[in-house]
Design a protein around this nucleic acid. Structure first.
Lengths: 234, 234
DNA sequence: ACAAGCATAGTCATCAGACCACTTTTCGCA
DNA sequence: TGCGAAAAGTGGTCTGATGACTATGCTTGT
């Protein structure tokens, strides 16, 4: 057992035992060092570890705090990791994204309000009229976020955000097939919105799943233009 | 911009630029310090941060390596975080787990082989005959893992594992309603297995969703015995 | 020529102590 | 009483040294 792991263990134990409650302040680094019998550098590495995972927050000059441990907030921390994944690793996440976005669309359909309907319609029109691919991608994000928010589970929303966060996304809108991609994407959005506004969860679910699957297909094409296949080996 | 963040940025930049490819070794800490213009302590805190996220691996005496960046492996790192979440935070993850487990059950149903059918049946019998709640919980894990593996997406499997990892699970099997809980759980398993063996994805999906929802219900009861409600506010 | 064992150099792990930057509290002055 | 400055407390960063582990290549004996 390394020193770092002992320190980590000590901190985790304190949290699990309720010695520090969410949002509360830990003892000072000096005191923690004494308590856990480790040097300050080792303690700080342990703190950094938990800090990277969104469990701890260090505030310069003030103290070290246990985070609120809100799942949505913890999950948001991981988007920087997703940014580092190579494209083929990223593609492995698409099945999750497809299932979750479909679920959220279904939930949104079940709860759709007139206000949501208006917002969706307005966004679609603006998106289709936007010539700049980047701004269009931005409106796209807003569209999906609107649906996620309507779905009612902020935790799932943040998880989907992590998957979608990847900036290099709009690249598929700039290839030779840009126009085709754009048209298909717009059509997908209209299907999703129509199903949600009709308060038809099943239709919304399949429309959203199909939309994500299509994005996955284009990305896969980008990775390997030779052998495009949406479905996995049977 | 703090020194730590500059170091983090430098490392991330190296990864994104492909200076180090997955599995490869970074330059030594000393050289990285010189390159990024930070002290060794700050560099090490940056390395620890990426290491906590499963992006980097430090091997004592050998070097600092970029991980394979396999999503399943990266996700597995987060189980220690889930262990620290309070029960009410954990419950917010159940909607995700429900959707994903249902999806995996559906996939397993679509691909069920005779071998899988045998394994499922055998596990169910052993589970129902096991008197010790802990060993039964263990068999329960095996049952669900079997289904996930059959689902064919290791990334989703590891994500579900993270949600299920939480050891405190078996507590619901030890309350006053233990017998009732156990019986319902066994019945749920039989439904799921039957649907998978019948190669009926829709049935498998709803059976699995219902099973997870039931677990969630019991846990919620544990948290707040007064006002149990499965559905959210309408 | 080859294999086992051993030095050696390279690397991460840990420690100690100092100083800096920021925040919070305290206390004296207007 | 209210405000501002001082002081105390805390995390942020740096330096340098030492320990522990790994990999490499060499030495040695067969």
């Amino acid at each position: 057992m390394t020193v770092l792991n002992e320190a980590l263990d000590g901190l985790r134990r304190m949290i699990a035992a309720g010695e520090v409650t969410p949002g509360e302040k830990f003892p000072s680094e000096t005191e923690l060092c004494a308590r856990l019998n480790v040097s300050r550098s080792s303690l700080r590495e342990a703190v950094r570890t938990l800090s990277a995972l969104g469990v701890i927050e260090s505030r310069h000059g003030s103290g070290t705090y246990l985070s609120r441990l809100d799942p949505a907030q913890v999950i948001r921390n991981f988007s920087l990791t997703v940014d580092l994944l190579p494209l083929d690793s990223l593609l492995q996440l698409f099945e999750i994204r497809r299932v979750l976005e479909a679920h959220m669309a279904a939930q949104a359909a079940a709860r759709c309000t007139p206000a949501l309907a208006d917002s969706l319609n307005s966004l679609i029109v603006r998106m289709e009229d936007e010539p700049d691919p980047r701004l269009a991608a931005d409106l796209d994000s807003q569209f999906h976020r609107l649906i996620c928010d309507a779905g009612g589970n902020p935790t799932i929303t943040s998880l989907i955000d992590v998957f979608r966060s990847r900036g290099s996304h709009y690249k598929i809108m700039e290839g030779t097939a840009a126009a085709e991609v754009r048209a298909a994407s717009d059509a997908g959005h209209r299907s999703i919105a129509a199903a949600i506004i009709a308060r038809d969860p099943i239709a919304a679910q399949s429309a959203a799943a199909s939309h994500v699957a299509q994005t996955e297909y284009w990305l896969r094409l980008l990775l390997d233009p030779g052998t495009p296949h949406v479905a996995e080996a049977i």
